[in-house]
Simulated assay, not measured.
Amino acid sequence: MVFAMPGFVARLTRPFMTASFLGVVPENGIAAAATIPDGAQEAIVAAGCFWGVEHIYRKHFGDKGLYDARVGYVGGHTKNPTYRAVCSTETGHAEATQLIFDPSRITYAQLIDFFYRIHDPTTKDRQGGDRGSQYRSGIYYRNSEQKKIAEEITAKANAQWYDNSVTTEIVEAGQWWDAEAYHQLYLDKNPSGYQCPTHYVRDLPPLQ
């Protein structure tokens, strides 16, 4: 499949638009932290530009037990990272999506299976035209059960779908940092905004 690359102007303006561009000016520019309902669980994944990842999870699981999907930063070595700093690749963070879900309606395994259907996990530090370690493919687990599930599904996806070329890292989540407020629900607020061309649901057979 041939993908259209984002326009030159869109690529230039994408990283550093201000919150006021969307009419949202939160305190210090930082989004409020998510509230996790009783009994809910958290999953964190990175699959390139976080706008598209958040949007596609909401679209497919919004009525199936997904309470919230937020964009932010994980896997780095500095505190309070900003988007500009993360884009420099010097903080070590990945653009990531935090999924808060009802485990009685949707499982962690289903969310990870879907993760491998919606991006290209074989291109190290790159999705489409977006290049840099912040665009790496990653699963960031919170406990040993999540780690086990992530490793099992990754092994199957690697063997059955991606010809043993998966580059996805599976590491303990560590500190989650919410991205600035103007990034949250970005594609809902800007339907014609930039979206990475690798973010679509692939028609792949069930994993065995």
Rank of each mutant, 00 (worst) to 15 (best):
F3V: 07
M5D: 11
G7K: 14
G7M: 10
V9L: 15
A10H: 14
L12S: 06
M17N: 13
F21N: 10
G23D: 11
E27R: 14
G29T: 06
I30V: 15
A34E: 15
A34G: 09
I36F: 13
D38A: 14
Q41A: 06
E42M: 11
G48E: 07
C49Y: 10
E54G: 00
R58C: 03
H60Q: 13
F61H: 03
D63V: 01
D68S: 10
R70E: 11
R70Y: 09
V71A: 03
G72Y: 00
G72C: 02
V74A: 04
G75N: 01
G76Q: 02
T82K: 05
R84W: 09
C87Q: 07
T89Y: 12
T91E: 09
A94Y: 14
E95Q: 06
I100S: 03
I100E: 07
D102F: 09
P103A: 01
P103V: 03
T107W: 12
L111V: 04
L111E: 07
I112V: 15
R117L: 04
I118V: 12
P121S: 01
T122K: 02
K124A: 10
Q127M: 05
G128K: 03
G128V: 00
Q134N: 07
Q134V: 02
R136G: 02
N143V: 06
S144Q: 15
I149T: 14
I149N: 09
E151Y: 03
T154P: 02
A157L: 10
Q160L: 13
Y162E: 09
I170G: 00
I170L: 06
V171E: 13
V171D: 05
E172A: 13
G174W: 09
G174V: 00
G174K: 02
W176D: 00
W177N: 02
W177R: 01
Y182S: 04
L185W: 14
N190Y: 07
S192Y: 11
H199G: 01
Y200R: 14
V201F: 13
P205L: 10
